[in-house]
Design a protein around this nucleic acid. Structure first.
Ligand SMILES: [Mn+2]
Ligand SMILES: [Mn+2]
Ligand SMILES: [Zn+2]
Ligand SMILES: [Zn+2]
Lengths: 132, 132
DNA sequence: TATAATTTAAGACTAAGTCTAAAATCAGGC
DNA sequence: GCCTGATTTTAGACTTAGTCTTAAATTATA
């Protein structure tokens, strides 16, 4: 809570109750929620917050580098509190998105493609979550 | 033209003028157009076709395996006439999507991730197209 | 406390996509 | 070549994700 406020201040974001609520939720989230999913959840702790403020705050957090956007789900952008490089696995049945650690997969050749100056890359996997 | 008609028949799709126009366009396309981009282009050869028919036909072609959908651009799905496995490079300035041949990049470890049954994967790269 | 700057909220607006129901087209049997 | 039922197309209504606008509320500062 105070650490969230400090984090926002350090990133040049004026902490308001709404922004703190959004930041607390998304930074603590391990799923990869859409803006509307964040809106629904944040409403539970901050019932008067508007949709516009949630969207604006998420975009602001992306701009300041505290979270990332990912294009992985059809129809909507998702937000990822995990900013370090990693890969993703999409469950084809449920649509759930799971993080795959950077070192769990090895990729070679991406940097030396002719014609392309690659700034970043990730492996996107699709399949089924294995019953454990 | 006759080969497109044959291809549709072989896939169990009744060839109509609208479907032939959509199929000819998307199967010959090397960009990765959205449904609305396909709509605008197909209108030029078939000016009365409706948006619903273009969307329905694209979804039908996906269902029959003649083209693929890709989630690579924010805000919209794109269609890919290249059905064999390959990777993608997204130009961060222009948004253009380029194919990267399967063998240009090597990925290892994806199949033996514990907890995930990977059915398919691709490397998604982002950066700048290099001036040649 | 007064003032100016920032932020929020509600709802209008836009864009991507689906759905509906009536009209048009098509295929097979006579 | 027509009749009939099945398929397809169309226009527009509808839905959902997201942005924009503007007035009101909040916040920072002096
Ligand atoms: Mn955005
Ligand atoms: Mn679809
Ligand atoms: Zn992630
Ligand atoms: Zn492609």
């Amino acid at each position: 809570m105070t650490d969230t406020i400090d984090l926002l201040r350090q990133s040049g974001i004026q902490p308001t109750p709404q922004r703190i609520a959004v930041a607390e939720f998304i930074l603590g989230s391990k799923t990869h929620p859409s803006a509307d999913e964040v809106f629904v959840m944040v409403r539970q702790t901050c019932p008067t917050v508007s949709r516009a403020t949630v969207y604006n705050t998420l975009n602001l957090l992306v701009e300041k580098g505290l979270i990332r956007q990912q294009v992985l789900r059809e129809g909507t952008i998702i937000f990822d509190s995990h900013v370090a490089a990693h890969h993703h696995f999409v469950d084809e049945e449920t649509g759930e998105i799971h993080d795959v650690p950077w070192d769990a997969v090895q990729v070679s050749g991406a940097e030396k493609l002719i014609g392309f100056e690659v700034h970043e890359f990730q492996v996107v996997m699709r399949g089924r979550l294995r019953a454990k």
